[in-house]
């Protein structure tokens, strides 16, 4: 049952991601990206991460993509078709595709057995015993609540990187204000 739902969401995510880069109109591309983000949120729910799913919809689909759409509508970007057939474009495409193949090959080797070995520190750990039928997330939720499971590592173990990220975002906002205030 869960697997069927997973494949439904996965298919929607992949197909709409492909449609996103194949659309000529910028608004349609943005909307297909929203669909991808929605299906990713569905997959997060299947993994037992309801909080991450809600935040995914709230932040990415609800705020970031609305701002994208806002900018597209404001600048009124039409059906512009830049020429993508030069030899430099072909070279860049080959490099990017090559990097993607390397990345996928690396991820392919990252099996549950290897993950189990890295977590426990013993090379022959049984992944089935470590992640009993995907119950890890449910146990975490039962123990700490939906939000607690995310909040505890974020505000204890990774507090310094988390705060550093907020400083980064603040400097980005200040930079945007400086650019916007400059007299043209």
């Amino acid at each position: 049952m869960t697997e069927v739902v997973f494949y439904v969401f996965a298919t929607i995510a992949v197909v709409s991601a492909a449609l996103c880069i194949l659309q000529r109109s910028a608004v349609s591309a943005a909307l297909w990206l929203v669909t991808t983000m929605f299906s990713l949120a569905g997959i997060y729910v299947l993994l037992g991460a309801q909080f991450i799913a809600a935040v995914q919809v709230l932040v990415y689909a609800g705020a970031v993509m609305v701002l994208f759409l806002f900018v597209i509508m404001l600048l009124n970007i039409g059906h512009s078709t830049p020429d993508l057939r030069g030899s430099s474009m072909v070279g860049a495409t080959v490099v990017v595709v090559g990097l993607l193949v390397v990345e996928l090959a690396t991820l392919w080797r990252y099996t549950p057995r290897r993950l189990a070995a890295e977590i426990t520190g013993t090379p022959l750990a049984n992944p089935a015993a470590l992640f009993a039928a995907g119950q890890a997330a449910q146990q975490e939720t039962a123990a700490r609540g939906v939000v607690g499971g995310v909040a505890a590592p974020l505000f204890q173990q990774y507090l310094v990187p988390f705060e550093a990220t907020s400083v980064l975002l603040l400097s980005a906002i200040v930079g945007a204000v400086v650019l916007a205030k400059r007299k043209v």
Binding site: A54, V66, G145
Partner: peptide, 23 residues
Amino acid sequence: PIGFLFVLAISSMGVYGIALAGW
């Protein structure tokens, strides 16, 4: 279990209908 966040997340989707109707 995320009732309240669900409301915030889905209500932020309502803007698409209006923005796209306008565009």
